[in-house]
Design a protein around this nucleic acid. Structure first.
Lengths: 188, 188
DNA sequence: GTCTATATGGTGATAGAC
DNA sequence: GTCTATCACCATATAGAC
């Protein structure tokens, strides 16, 4: 694997595990098995490398979500497929995690992939819900964008609850709760 | 105000703004207007001071939530009061934020107030929901603990969406979405 | 392209005077 | 109790040899 790719992949892992402030160039180099100068040859610095890593993580997250949401089945089933996908609750979300970091939020190059990915996800789920309403499967009235934001928030917040409890259980409870509410929201 | 209190309060603010890794003893001292030695006289070190600050934030968060949840009204109204409380979405949750930090999660003294507060909150909301079910106000069948976890996750996840978007809007959407789902979950 | 050496400033804490 | 030194180490980067 090329040096750039090893650097990007190591940075993806470290950002996920330790966040942006907690990730040092030195740690990246060591995990990638690469010297100081090599990193600064391929990237301008930590922000540049982190931006590349976040763009790649964003692509991957989007592909995973799209696989669930574009699948067969009713609107409820597709959203349920997204919500119920197997996740490592204690690891959290590679993208959502970044939103807590002030340095990420303050740097447009770092925030952009985070904003775009979560924004796209909310929009995509809102589409599915709107389709369900149009097909008469889901009750009309509720704003699809609101329901979609709630669905995404349950996942992101579920990670918070799981890490706080050091257990996947609250994450699974939150997903089950959201599914119960959505299921009851179908038309009879 | 006593020196200890100024140190604790400054630490509460900095933990909220910058997280645990991003908060240095030096920054705490400067904000509190206190010298190096003074801080180490009153506290053993950064973890000790952070633990004190987190315990205080936890108490405050709990009191705020209880004020909404113990209020008058139906179960739906009390949960809606909690969900709809005015919040600074871009600041996020003082307690939930800590769950992202590996050093907090790894240190039992730091994780304890986070775990206990969010655990208490889920349990307290589950009680309210169970009361609503018993009173025939809410549909039976759904597990109160699951619905409660979903409610708390919507708030915690709403903060993530807001910070990612650099706008309070997605937070408010998520809350509206959760309220719409809960409202439809009442018995007719 | 990759390496080692070096630089500047911050982190978290201790020592000891006052 | 509070202050100012001082410390060892890490973060982030630059310089320049190979």
């Amino acid at each position: 694997m090329a040096t750039q790719d090893r650097l990007i992949e190591s940075t993806q892992e470290l950002l996920w595990e330790r966040g942006y402030v907690g990730t040092s160039p030195k740690a990246i180099q060591q995990r990638a098995g690469v010297g100081q100068g090599s990193m600064y040859h391929h990237f301008e610095g930590k922000p540049d490398l982190a931006a590349a890593a976040l763009r790649r993580s964003a692509e991957q997250m989007r592909a995973l979500a799209e696989a669930d949401l574009a699948g067969p089945g009713t609107a409820y089933e597709r959203v349920a497929s997204y919500l119920g996908r197997e996740r490592d609750a204690l690891r959290g979300c590679r993208i959502g995690r970044m939103a807590q970091d002030p340095e990420v939020v303050a740097d447009p190059r770092l925030r952009a992939p985070v904003e775009e990915t979560l924004g796209w996800l909310r929009g995509r789920i809102a589409e599915v819900i709107a389709e369900g309403q149009a097909a008469g499967e889901l009750r009309p009235g509720a704003e699809p964008a609101d329901l979609a934001a709630a669905v995404v928030a349950v996942v992101q917040g579920g990670y918070v609850l799981a890490r706080a409890a050091d257990s996947a259980e609250p994450f699974e409870q939150a997903v089950r709760g959201a599914l119960a509410l959505l299921a009851a929201h179908r038309r009879d």
